[in-house]
Nucleic acid binder design. Structure first.
Length: 284
DNA sequence: AACGCTTCCAACCGCCTGTAG
DNA sequence: TCTACAGGCGGTTGGAAGCGT
């Protein structure tokens, strides 16, 4: 026995919403709110629509704070990073992007960003190209309103990433590589040299397990000291030394790889913990 | 202009989860 | 504890728009 349908499908209209329907829904919600019941809402509002459809229409299109299209490079990066961290948790990803809906992010990923990433046009960790300059002060503005992040220093070019919730941090403990991850983030694609002469931070190979098994209340990311010499164990003990040789830092976050590959990457890349709940990421 | 193919995105579907009774 | 129901979510689809031939 299947689940009872949420509405009488024979008597509800389907397909694209008309401007009149939009106006009706908007007006009703403006006056009455949802009343805590989307299922009953269309009947009260005089709409021949399924309650779920009304909810979707409101959340994805009619809400006043919705942004459509025009994803910024910074948003691209955030989506890519979060996708590698937690997979297709679109609502969680969208919650980190003010004004974006899960549907929007999902569509954007499926239609554009995935291809863009495949073509190497989005900054990826350790990408050895000029894309790092994508992280500029101009991009701060989108997220400055985030109440949990301190405002950027006027004299610096900090990039303030939005809050990653504790839930997101929890996701990272149960990650696996799906096909897309393997394709998009293969060592070749990332231009990484795994375990070679540059694997200078091998003694730091507990980083990955710390990330993935972290019970910390913070989401974590790491900054790479490209060309730096020390492991910075002392810094790990004494907190993040954010002012050290910033010119050598590179935008990098937990990619969510499991197992040996993750260990290899982390041992190569990661050298410093930062609290990613309100990380200040600086351009390379 | 007409046709076919591709891309994009709004909307739907059905499963899962949370919660009230 | 169980059940029913609504909300939430991710996957998928259908059609409009764009583009090339």
């Amino acid at each position: 026995m299947g689940r009872a349908p949420c509405c009488d499908k024979a008597n509800v209209k389907r397909g694209p919403w008309s401007p009149d329907e939009d106006a009706t829904l908007k007006n009703y919600l403006h006056t009455h709110g949802t009343g805590g019941n989307w299922i009953a809402l269309p009947r009260k509002a005089g709409l021949r629509r399924c309650g779920k459809s009304c909810r979707l229409r409101w959340l994805n299109y009619l809400r006043p704070d919705i942004k459509h299209g025009g994803f910024t490079e910074q948003e691209d990066q955030i989506i890519c990073t979060l996708y590698t961290q937690m997979g297709s948790r679109w609502s969680a990803i969208a919650s980190q992007l003010p004004g974006r809906t899960d549907n929007d992010v999902k569509n954007y990923w499926n239609t554009k960003l995935k291809k863009k990433l495949m073509a190497g046009k989005v900054i990826s960790p350790n990408n050895n190209n000029n894309n790092k300059t994508l992280l500029t002060t101009q991009q701060n503005s989108d997220f400055q309103d985030n109440k949990n992040c301190s405002p950027p220093s006027s004299s610096s070019s900090l990039v303030h990433l939005p809050i990653l919730s504790n839930d997101i941090n929890n996701f990272s403990s149960n990650l696996s590589l799906d096909l897309i991850h393997q394709q998009l983030y293969s060592p070749q694609f990332m231009n990484l040299e795994i375990g070679g002469a540059n694997s200078r931070n091998n003694k730091n190979n507990n980083s990955s397990s710390n990330i993935e098994g972290s019970t910390s209340s913070s989401s974590l990311a790491l900054l790479d000291y490209k060309g730096g010499s020390s492991l910075l164990e002392e810094e790990k003990q004494h907190g993040v030394g954010g002012d050290n040789d910033e010119s050598n830092k590179e935008f990098l976050m937990d990619l969510g790889f499991d197992g040996e590959f993750s260990q290899s990457i982390s041992s190569y890349c990661y050298s410093e913990w930062v609290d990613f709940n309100c990380a200040e990421i600086k351009p390379h």
